[in-house]
């Protein structure tokens, strides 16, 4: 038998580490419910004597967190739905149908996965700004603001990730050919085989891709930051950052806003941990 370190020590180390990871979340929650006197007290009050739930409605009075929240939710759902639709189709085509140029296309998609954000973001902005016929632009995309400050720019560019295509291709590849052939002999069309026979079999991949897409979209900051200026189009992360720069010292409200911006993902993660872990462990890519 191998010599194991004592279980107690192991748990002690891991519990200490886990505690360090959790402290900021706990501090965020506690601070969001502190009264004005207690949050500015020194030394800090660890456990509040009164829990001020009205911090949440008050914070929403300072900044439209409800709108931010709704925007983030709509965009995240939009990204998830579109990504699932486009990426399952593309992944299926790349995995199950032999055609000329298939491996070349697949290699190109792998290549796009490796492209860093900053190697594309400036022209992406220009493309959005120069979208013809939108936002006062002429047919050449000049004169107006194009897609800037619109739902289009918040949803369309980020709606498909090469990572999702890659994931689905891997899952479709692992399905047996017999199923497909049996369905074909039964006279099913190619799209029905894709939608009704094969796709129901990759449900774990759908869950994983859906969760990771939702998470990335919900947490995304840079793109919404650069393409929106209107307050009613702000997503929660951008709204929160803007709120901080105006109300630098309203810590209770800031923590209430942070809680609103993190709680949906935390809850989602705790309930669907398995799919998240599987997705990140197999792909390891953000």
């Amino acid at each position: 038998m191998r010599v194991k370190p004592s279980r107690v020590l192991l748990h002690l180390i891991l519990a200490t580490g886990a505690l360090i990871m959790i402290v900021p979340f706990a501090w965020m929650l506690i601070s969001s419910l502190k009264s004005h006197a207690e949050i500015s007290a020194y030394p800090p009050v660890i456990w509040p004597t009164e829990w001020v739930w009205s911090n949440y409605p008050n914070a929403m009075g300072f900044a439209p967190f409800g709108t931010y929240f709704r925007n983030s939710l709509l965009i995240a759902i939009g990204h998830t739905v579109i990504n699932l639709a486009l990426a399952t189709m593309a992944g299926y085509a790349l995995a199950r149908v032999p055609f000329r140029g298939r491996s070349l296309i697949f290699m190109a998609i792998l290549g796009t996965m490796m492209i860093p954000t900053y190697t594309k973001i400036v022209p992406q902005y220009l493309i959005a700004k120069g979208m013809p016929f939108f936002g006062g632009n002429d047919y050449l995309g000049r004169g107006g603001f194009g897609w800037l400050d619109s739902w289009w720019v918040l949803i369309v560019p980020g709606a498909l990730t090469p990572f999702a295509i890659f994931m689905f291709r891997q899952f479709y590849l692992s399905l047996p050919t017999e199923l497909e052939e049996a369905a074909r002999i039964d006279g099913m069309g190619e799209f029905a085989i894709f939608g009704r026979v094969m796709t129901p079999l990759v449900k774990p991949a759908i869950a994983t891709v859906a969760l990771i897409t939702f998470e990335n979209s919900w947490n995304n900051f840079l793109w919404p930051l650069i393409v929106t200026t209107r307050d009613d189009l702000r997503v929660i992360q951008v709204g929160l950052a803007a709120f901080q720069q105006v109300e630098k010292t309203e810590w209770a409200y800031l923590m209430a806003g942070s809680t609103l911006a993190t709680i949906p993902m935390i809850v989602l993660f705790l309930f669907t941990q398995r799919y998240f872990v599987q997705g990140f462990a197999t792909a390891g890519i953000k």
Partner: peptide, 8 residues
Amino acid sequence: HITATVAI
């Protein structure tokens, strides 16, 4: 890792 960088 899964919580928003801005908020945290």
